[in-house]
Amino acid sequence: MKKLISGALLALFSVIFSASAEQYNVLDFKSIKYRLLYESYQNGNWDIFMINADGSGKKNITDSKKINELYPKVSPDGNKFAFVIDTGEGRNRKRDLYLMNLDGSGKKMVSEHGRQPCWSPDGRYIAFTKSESARRFSLESWSTKGLFIYDTTTGEIKEHANKRLEHLYNLCWSPDGKYITATVLGGMGYKHTNIGIDVKGTRYFLLNIVGCRPEFSPDGKMVGWGKSDAEFDLAKIYMDRAVPVAEKDKFPFLSVTKGYEVYHLDWSPDGKYIAFAFGPDGEQNVGGTAHGWDICIAEIATGKWQKITFDGNQNKEPDWIPLGE
């Protein structure tokens, strides 16, 4: 009987949370107090833009002509953001990790060759990876080596205790502070999967998530990820289990039609919405070419979603700004 009820609930979830590409202009986002950052390619250059959740108030906060700023990740207090800067061209391009105040002031380099930053929930640390090849630049998200932790109070960088970590991308620090999740490709004996890594210690473990780029909900009870190029799944997550996500916890949340992609899911600070990038088949990697991509917001409770940018300027990697300042 218990099994039957669970099955019925799962089926109900699947119906409620499914969505399609046709569901535009169905939500009123004016009541959402949060803003977002995202990367966008305009006038031959990547910059980081800020925008209100209803699509109003778009502002270029890096506004540089020759420097490419990408992959913004806002601190938990909403005052700073970590991001990467790309300089140079082609194989000589170089990617470094920086930190900046939300008003565009106080730019500071965190690490040469740093990539894929994510914040600890207390806002003290930034975890990141480094570019693997010193010989030539790679746009591939997985082309990384090691896991590093930057202490914003001391400026010190320490490599994670497990020195075998490689080819990690899309780092996400769990809200309880104990784990960092990541997708791994062709590293540590894995083909392509998602893992949890103990922040203290050397252990890493499979999350039982097929797809890529898992992101925690703010309360740490849910995780969302890209099941494929065109689908997001959600699941309950229990980090105290041997395998934190069980098959029965997963349900489809959003899917789009063939020829379109959804990527870069990010939970709103109140856990009610998901921001993501959507557009025609393109390159999802940081700085990859993705013509026609826009930032969208989906409501968790209904699965309804819509665009909040409409210029299609390769808008990707949305990141919510906490506190609604």
Binding site: S133, A134, R136, E140, G186, G189, K191, H192
Partner: peptide, 27 residues
Amino acid sequence: KLELSNPSHFKNEKNPAEMVAWVNAAI
């Protein structure tokens, strides 16, 4: 030898590289 990221699932230097996207083969 070329210091390129090796995407292979089955790591072994004597094995052929796999998990190679066409563009990465071109690179």
